[in-house]
């Protein structure tokens, strides 16, 4: 359970991200604070506008942090850093996007799409070396070397997403920020992409930040999950733990919305609606605090007492079920 002996790859430390909108400041991310361990898949789950993509982009140095800092392998990577470090970050942290059609240059061959990173950073000895690397990247995602002379439109959605993954993998990254990588894909292809991501995690010890909007996929792929709502992380726990002891009402609302492929159950389903305005928000300012080992929740002392009482009931229930 404990993560003490795991190596921290990336730390997001008390990060605020704000956007200026006609002189008004909009806080898109509020005090985000979490670690990603080496070799794990860390999922960030929330609905549109929750700030999950903004955090991903801040890690990639596309959005600036207003407060706090982001630390990658012990070095700060947010704010002003040297050109050399910048290059290093761009190479080590790669991204996979939601829409594979929009993220590939439609006028360039697959060979160029995949090699672009190599060109930019001169990561190859000679032409032969570059071609070997492209071939290897294509093979590793289940495409064929002869595909490299083709154009993106000649591929299906799933194949394009595999090109997107090959393009990221060729840079030999340590962290991949995958922003809804399967949302735009068909059901049957989703499974292929998820399997492929897991394969790289096992073979190369790759680490993922997996951004998603629904919990069903995340249960399958993530080791740990952070639930984010309106820019605020409300709950973080290991995947099993979160599904066993979901505590925050927003987590429960998301859980109740997971579509289940069963007509009898789905037709009876009731959504648990999360309405922040109807909640009792009295008492001191809430903070993210640990309620069970590795399980954090955004609460003040009064709420904490409620969650603890609830947790005890749940623990007893699980005991009674013989688990």
């Amino acid at each position: 359970m404990s993560n003490t002996n795991k190596e921290v790859l990336l730390s997001v430390k008390h990060v605020d991200i704000a956007f200026n909108n006609e002189g008004k400041k909009f806080r898109a991310v509020k005090d985000a604070n979490f670690d990603i361990y080496k070799g794990e898949t860390f999922a960030l789950v929330g609905e549109s506008g929750s700030g999950k993509t903004t955090i991903g982009r801040a890690i990639l140095r596309i959005n600036e942090c207003d407060k706090g800092e982001i630390v990658f392998k012990g070095k700060r990577i947010s704010g002003k850093i040297s050109k050399e470090e910048d290059t290093n970050v761009i190479r080590s942290i790669q991204m996979i996007f939601q829409d594979p059609a929009a993220s590939l240059n439609e006028r360039a061959t697959i060979e160029y799409c995949i090699s672009e990173g190599l060109y930019n950073f001169h990561l190859y000895k000679d032409e032969a070396d570059r071609i070997t690397k492209v071939d290897q990247a294509l093979t590793s995602v289940g495409l064929l070397p002869e595909h490299k002379s083709r154009y993106p439109h000649e591929f299906s959605g799933g194949q394009r997403q595999r090109v997107g993954i090959a393009r990221a993998m060729i840079m030999e990254p340590e962290l991949i920020v995958a922003d809804e990588p399967i949302s735009a894909l068909d059901v049957s292809i989703r499974a292929q992409v998820l399997n492929l991501m897991n394969k790289f995690k096992e073979e190369k010890g790759l680490t993922y930040l997996f951004i998603a909007h629904d919990l069903s996929v995340v249960r399958f792929i993530a080791d740990r999950i952070a639930v984010i709502h309106h820019g605020r992380i409300v709950e973080i726990a290991e995947s099993e733990e979160l599904f066993r002891y979901p505590l925050h009402p927003y987590t429960i609302s998301l859980l109740s919305a997971v579509p289940m492929p069963d007509p009898q159950i789905e037709k009876k389903k009731e959504l648990v609606v999360y309405d922040e305005l109807k909640r009792d928000l009295s008492g001191p300012k809430p903070v993210l605090q640990e309620i069970r080992p590795g399980h954090f929740i955004f609460a003040n002392d009064r709420e904490m007492a409620e969650y603890e009482a609830k947790l005890q009931v749940m623990e007893k229930e699980h005991e009674a079920l013989g688990e």
Binding site: V187, I189, R190
Partner: peptide, 20 residues
């Protein structure tokens, strides 16, 4: 069968999902 089998809701962690 294949469509239903590839749903991540039915997947077991640590095992590959079924895919077409």
């Amino acid at each position: 069968w294949a469509l239903l089998s590839s749903l991540p809701q039915l997947g077991t962690k640590g095992q590959d999902l079924y895919y077409i």
